[in-house]
């Protein structure tokens, strides 16, 4: 088992490395091919001649691409000096690049945005897992009943409504119309846990609304599949009470694919819920990268992309390990 985990982690690292190579190449090579100067992109919009020259020097854009990549990679572990004569900048490890636009290391932006994103993602995840999976199980057990049909109709609607729509409607109602949640902004958990939860709740609800619907449908389908399995019939034939049949035999199999999808969803949510963050004005990873894109702040985009990819890769590894723990058939020997 340990070997299996190590192999998975090593595999994940290789994938992350590949992602870093590809994003790096895209950002550094594509402008070159197109004939524009990446230094101009890096320096932000319409910079002065001197600024461009400074950035070119600082970034080492006069050096070969491989060397540039090596500096970038090494910077993650050892930190990096951006050195151009008198203008010295130190980017401490882990250095995911330096945003000249905001005059700070990208890592600083990430660490500022990360708690927001984590708060949003985890809170919503708790909600949609409880609601979505709960409704899914209930629907499957009462298949064809009024409850089932009502739940699935609502779920279908919820899946088709975009987050920015439900988010804006909710904001309009609870924040501006009824003023139950006025002045929504992010408050750090450690500063004021109550305010933290109160301000995040509308966003959690919006995100959970969409995801609950998806998880209800997924859980229901998975549960129905499992309830039709021969081993469920065997469990009943043994004379097990229905709650054991469902709670132990069916649920364990039915939730395995749900957990798989959940791992991946959580991984990508942690990379930033772009629409929700933007709608509610939370500066999480999603909103940070959107702003970086709109201002052409390439180092930030590069850094956040690699960082978000890290979450997805990590989630993948965890899902694989989870599978091996739950299902003896895929357990490595």
């Amino acid at each position: 088992m340990a070997g299996f985990v190590i192999r998975r982690v090593l595999g994940g690292i290789v994938i992350l490395w590949l992602i870093s190579v590809i994003t790096f190449l895209l950002f550094f090579l594509v402008p070159k091919v197109l004939g524009s100067n990446p230094a101009i992109l890096f320096a932000g919009r319409s910079p002065s001649e001197a600024a461009v020259a400074g950035v070119t020097k600082k970034l080492g854009l006069d050096q070969p691409i491989v060397v540039q990549y090596w500096h970038f990679l090494a910077g993650i572990f050892t930190g990096r000096h951006f050195d151009a004569g008198p203008d010295k900048t130190w980017c401490p490890p882990p250095c995911f690049g330096y945003s000249f636009k905001n005059s700070e290391p990208v890592w600083q932006e990430i660490t500022r945005a990360l708690p927001v994103t984590i708060s949003l993602a985890l809170g919503a995840a708790v909600l949609f897992l409880l609601i979505g999976v709960g409704i899914g199980i209930l629907s499957a057990l009462r298949r064809g009943s009024v409850v089932d049909r009502a739940a699935m109709t609502v779920a279908l609607g919820a899946v088709s409504l975009p987050v920015y729509f439900t988010g804006l409607v909710l904001l309009l109602l609870v924040s501006y119309q009824w003023r139950i949640f006025p002045n929504i902004h992010y408050v750090a958990f450690l500063d004021n846990p109550l305010l933290w939860a109160r301000n995040l709740l509308p966003a959690w609800i919006v995100l959970a609304f969409l995801y609950s619907a998806m998880y209800a449908r997924l859980t229901r389908a998975s549960m129905l599949d499992v309830l039709g399995e021969d081993y469920i019939r065997t469990a009943r034939a043994k004379g097990l009470p229905e709650r054991t049949v469902v709670g132990k035999h069916a649920l364990r199999s039915a939730l395995t694919p749900v957990v798989t999808i959940f791992g991946l969803d959580l991984g990508s949510l942690l990379g930033g819920a772009v629409l929700t963050e933007t709608t509610f004005g939370f500066r999480g990873l999603g909103k940070t990268s959107i702003e970086a894109i709109s201002t052409g702040d390439l180092p930030t985009i590069l850094g956040v992309t690699i960082f978000a990819a890290g979450f997805v890769v990590l989630a993948n590894i965890l899902v694989d390990v989870f599978y091996a723990v739950v299902d003896p058939r895929v357990r490595p020997t």
């Binding site: 399995e229 021969d230 081993y231 019939r233 065997t234 469990a235 034939a237 043994k238 035999h249 364990r252 199999s253 739950v326 299902d327 003896p328 058939r329």
Partner: peptide, 15 residues
Amino acid sequence: MAMIFQDPLSAMHPY
């Protein structure tokens, strides 16, 4: 009363 089924692989819980 007890029952045994056709396909013993699918009739037992894999986990």
